[in-house]
């Protein structure tokens, strides 16, 4: 049990962050709070992917001068660059989602005059 926590503490941390975001999405009544929860959830997923690319004693994924012209580069010396690339895309898509969600929120406030979920359901009826 202790060994499980010590060697995999990163995954447990991301699960806690994911559950905080999930709680905010389900339980909170305010729509901006739901958007904040969505942001926290996406960030925890991105953190999960970035931590997969970690290597012990690995340096940044930028080639050193001594390796520029060598033919056999030791792949264990550098971090895994593939999760970083995928998560660059995910961050930009995250902000696009946030922008559209906030535009819809502004329209809803202009139309119904509130951002609380229960009052909104009453006024729509």
């Amino acid at each position: 049990m202790i060994d499980f926590i010590v060697t995999k503490y990163n995954y447990l941390f991301y699960i806690v962050l994911f559950l905080i975001g999930f709680y905010a999405i389900i339980v909170k009544k305010n729509l901006v709070k739901k958007v904040i929860g969505m942001n926290i959830m996406q960030t925890s997923i991105i953190l999960f992917y970035v931590s997969i690319g970690c290597k012990k004693d690995g340096t940044l994924p930028i080639l050193l001068d001594s390796d520029l012209h060598s033919h056999a580069i030791d792949a264990g010396k550098y971090l895994n660059p593939l999760p970083h690339v995928l998560m660059l895309t995910a961050i930009v898509v995250m902000v696009a989602t946030l922008g559209v969600a906030l535009a819809v929120l502004i329209l809803m406030y202009k139309q119904y005059g509130t951002l609380e979920e229960d009052e909104l359901l009453k006024r729509i009826k």
């Binding site: 499980f4 060697t7 995999k8 503490y9 990163n10 995954y11 447990l12 699960i15 931590s51 997969i52 690319g53 970690c54 290597k55 012990k56 690995g58 994924p61 580069i73 792949a75 264990g76 550098y78 895994n80 660059p81 593939l82 999760p83």
Partner: peptide
């Protein structure tokens, strides 16, 4: 989580298959 590789493991499946080619 019990099936995932350890943190900072150099031999994890994610860093054995395609990333050495890229590097």
């Amino acid at each position: 989580v019990a099936g995932m590789p350890d943190l900072a493991d150099p031999d994890s499946p994610a860093s054995r298959h395609v990333s050495p080619e890229y590097i």
